[in-house]
Design a protein around this nucleic acid. Structure first.
Lengths: 341, 341
DNA sequence: CTGTTAGCGCGTTCAT
DNA sequence: ATGAACGCGCTAACAG
């Protein structure tokens, strides 16, 4: 790539004149501008963003830690965040969480080396250790967590309104005539905790008892479908089965349907199933899965904007939480409501 | 972030001594090293990678253009590529293809500005225009395409062995007793073209006629499930139906099963279905989908290594093609082979 | 209008 | 063993 100095040499002017000419500085003659721009264009000149970064003290880079590139939900959030950040001149440096965990290098060293102006943290399968969290605090750039928060930590947060989602899922099952409610979730992450709290709270408000045996926790750390199927098999083998279950994500919902059908349960007549997330699989499944639509695009856009505001000192993200609404998408895995019948 | 100069001031030594001390240069006293390192550690010093980049002429960045962050297949490839590149000190700058198309800025300006040392191109839904391709050639860094190539272009390439995959899919259907073969694909991308060629070639070798009506092309540009379902509905309404279909990806395969079942076809008795890709959905679907497993991890690793080799001058990627094997995963959507019966 | 100078943070000579 | 000086590519303040 050609440099300003080289362009200057070719045009017979100084480096700084080239710099000014290319940014249409008024104190440069039209003739010089023409000449300089022509040469720059011919050689496909592009200013070196890394140099501009060290001068301005702004790398114009955002560090993104993401667990699973292939996850459609995270992907949609990232796309939206990328778009708004890109338009403000930021580039994304991505690092996969899971690959970094267990290495002796600091997970965020790369972000620090690149002088990332901000950090976006996607959900992890487990809460990081104290050292990682302290390293994160040591970065002097704002940090925003997506869809997950850690107890007592004061990073910015943007996610779904999981509490209301849990509440509405239970309402949907009860309205559909279910009386034996089951909940199938995964432990240890805040989104699950919030959905559970919303669900249990609603059951308590309605004075509906829940059989503790009907609450099943699958491991979220490794998405082991075989193991999940085994546990679900046991769950549906019990003589005392639920007639409506709320699954914390669509993947679990689809697996639950698969296993329940194998155990001879007809859906939605004998068992109603509600998922969460509205992933493509929920639509494709037979029967299609009633679920809750999240708004990944809005989440990503919001997180990107929060980061920008904070970088520009308009705001302080610390402790700021934004929760984005979710909406039921009713499909074949639940019956129509009693009221509608 | 503290700088070398500041550390020097705190320790009462010069900037360059600090630089040497931190890299254990032999010509620095043990005492000085101790002191310098202590201060650096205390302030969480990290060298500025951007500065090192402008000095060495190596940004240590790889530009990644990807169409859809949420795609599990691309995601797996990207993870593998990231891992190997990360270990060699490279960071990834990601840009979504689709967001950039139609903007007046050059799609790859950002890569050029960041002085990306190499570029990884994931599949696009359509072949880019001549201007984009020429811009790509103008970058002086090596470019590797993943899973897609463009006619007449000489970039490096790593993808699946689609031709053999197409051949084996047909063999699998024929061995299962099918005689009326159908093919459902998408137009315009090289992976589809290769699968089609492999399939048609095998049919010709076996002297099996294919009814042109049994070849259906769905649009790949926008993944419009509703529209695809409509076209599939027409496809299965014809009086003259295939008894075995090869779908170019699992998504199409699952949709085809859904629609075929609605038209009263029993699977695999009346219709056998083979997909391609072994995405999670193929396992979750009922009936589960026979498909071809790709090796995204190996593809990503290979692409990453090719890029490294080229950057280190060990190789020239230009025109180099690597095709990674695929393997059949037999599930419920196909019958066991005639021979096995 | 244009050129010179200084400086961003760092590594690498070359002196001391 | 340590420091001064130069250069990487570029911008900005000043001088001509």
């Amino acid at each position: 790539m050609i440099s300003l100095k080289e362009i200057g040499a070719l045009c017979g002017v100084s480096e700084s004149t080239v710099s000014k000419a290319l940014k249409d500085h008024p104190a440069v003659s039209a003739a010089t501008k023409e000449k300089v721009k022509a040469v720059a264009r011919k050689h496909h000149y592009q200013p070196n963003a890394n140099v501009q970064g060290i001068q301005s003290g702004r790398s114009q880079c955002i560090g993104v830690a993401i667990n699973n590139f292939g996850d459609p939900y995270s992907g949609a959030i990232l796309s939206a965040a990328q778009e708004i950040l890109h338009d403000s001149g930021y580039d994304l440096i991505v690092i996969p969480w899971d690959l970094m965990v267990g290495r002796n290098e600091g997970i965020f060293d790369r972000f620090a080396c690149r002088r990332a102006d901000g950090v976006l943290l996607f959900p992890t399968s487990k809460v990081p250790d104290a050292k990682t969290i302290s390293q994160l605090k040591g970065l002097d750039s704002p940090v925003i967590q997506i869809d997950q928060s850690w107890d007592g930590e004061e990073f910015g947060y943007v996610g779904s309104d999981n509490h209301s989602g849990g509440r509405d899922a239970i309402r949907l099952l009860l309205r559909g005539g279910c009386s034996q409610i089951g909940i199938i979730g995964y432990p240890g992450v805040s989104s699950g905790t919030e959905r559970l709290a919303g669900a249990l709270n609603e059951l308590a408000n309605r004075k509906v008892e829940i059989n503790p045996k009907h609450i099943l926790e699958l491991s979220s750390e490794k998405e082991d479908d075989e193991e999940s199927c085994r546990l679900l098999g046991e769950y549906f083998s019990s003589c005392d089965k639920p007639d409506g279950i709320f699954c914390f994500n669509d993947r679990i919902g689809v697996l639950a349907i698969k296993v329940a059908k194998k155990h001879g349960l007809s859906i939605p007549d004998e068992l109603q199933v509600v998922g969460f997330g509205n992933l493509p699989v929920s639509f494709l499944n037979a029967p299609s899965l009633t679920t809750f639509e999240q708004q990944p695009h809005l989440i990503g856009k919001t997180a990107g904007q929060m980061l920008l505001d904070c970088i520009n000192q308009k705001n302080n993200v610390s402790g700021k939480r934004v929760e984005i609404a979710v909406k039921a998408v009713r499909r074949e895995s639940t019956s129509i409501s009693v009221a509608e019948k």
